[in-house]
Design a protein around this nucleic acid. Structure first.
Lengths: 230, 230
DNA sequence: CCGTATTTGTCCGTATGTATG
DNA sequence: ACATACATACGGACAAATACG
């Protein structure tokens, strides 16, 4: 019976991954897209019915999602979308400072001309939406920009860790309502970062990348009306 | 039938965690202790029988273990203990350089006298076993030393990430046979690190921690007979 | 405080896919 | 190359725990 009723079944034909992994990806997408609210309960049987599958694969997907930090599991109660506290977001930013500095240095050391072209293309797009103060697409492009940078290090473990941190930060952002703003300044910083990469100054690029994270954090603090004394 | 035959059943009474999580911890322990060899296949039904449970919880534990990087899962074939390649170990060391630098700075910024005492106690123990060139207990103490340091940052996300990296590095070490050696130099570096913490010089401590990772990596390279040109 | 309904936790049977003789 | 044996993948049913009236 080839009835592609659910989006999952359709994916199944394209991708050759296991069912639990497909479910994991789909739930991850739903969470990050805000289709499931922060703190909301994930009903096992409801999800399995929605995907027209059994509860086993859903449970396995839950385990993966917990390990990757997107959900929290309460014994005999169920799983819930994690709510990232301010303190945790702060700690994640500390990590990002260190990791982005590393990314800056590594990419500067080994970036190919093609990769730099990709960065320029993304910056171009960001410039356009920034001029229109179009926050939502800017946010998406910004994510891709940083994701590419992480990829260009060639360090797969770094990419995995970095993506998880970004996801949790996204979870935090979903908690509050506003986007961060400061688009122009952000593009300026991006330009400076890529310029540092092109000039092959490793340490300078590292400092630049780190400074960008520090500035991002400030913009976030501001958007959330947090004191900036320390 | 209250027969506490398996160690898992015993644990169940002490800890109140879920069965999949207990299985996860136990398998993790078995892997890190080398009871399951690198690349070895983890038999679902064999493990479930060993623990006197069904295969469901074991499968869920597998998903967690995969996400935490200890096992690799092949579709329709089973899960295997991951073999960490030299390239990957290299990349993990790059990450450790960045993370340990962060740890050094943060601990220096916020360490309490009690915490510093703990570090001194661990160093004392390490000195003793190092004098006897007792590699195996030194290795364990060294792990605890660095784990405590990570904990003392108060950054839980950092601790999680750091532990996973250390686990994978341990997996890599299990591949080769030898311990790394260079115990005396290692203790000297530890002393310098703690001294930096006590002197409250944040940047200096950061450099010191990073240098320790660099030196550790060199010792490992040497133990594995790798060229050290780049 | 107790009984009931719902949900998670666990187990087992069957199908599908893979390796081997 | 084919058939057989075996392991995983998934679904469905039962048991235990929690929440609610």
């Amino acid at each position: 019976m080839p009835s592609a009723d659910t989006p999952l079944r359709a994916l199944k034909l394209v991708q050759s991954n296991s069912l639990p992994m497909l479910v994991q990806k789909e739930i991850e997408r739903m969470i990050l897209a805000g289709e499931i609210a922060i703190g909301e309960w994930l009903n096992e049987s409801a999800l399995s019915q929605r995907f027209s599958i059994s509860r086993g694969p859903v449970r396995e997907a839950f385990r993966s999602l917990e390990e990757s930090g997107l959900v929290r599991q309460e014994k005999n109660r169920g799983v819930f979308v994690r709510e990232v506290s301010v303190e945790e977001a702060d700690q994640i930013y500390d990590l990002r400072e260190a990791l982005d500095e590393l990314i800056g240095k590594q990419v500067t050391a080994c970036a190919t001309p093609d990769q730099i072209k990709v960065l320029h293309a993304l910056m171009e797009e960001m410039d356009n939406v920034a001029r229109a103060d179009d926050v939502s697409p800017y946010y998406a492009l910004n994510l891709r920009f940083h994701d590419r940078l992480a990829e260009f290090t060639g360090n797969r473990k770094l990419v995995t860790i970095y993506r998880r941190l970004i996801n949790e930060l996204h979870l935090f952002r979903l908690r509050g309502l506003s986007q961060f703003g400061g688009l122009r300044k952000s593009t300026d910083e991006h330009r400076a970062m890529v310029k540092a990469i092109e000039s092959k100054k490793i340490e300078a690029a590292g400092r630049m990348f780190k400074a960008h994270v520090v500035a991002s954090r400030r913009r976030m603090d501001k958007a959330f009306g947090r004191d900036k004394t320390s």
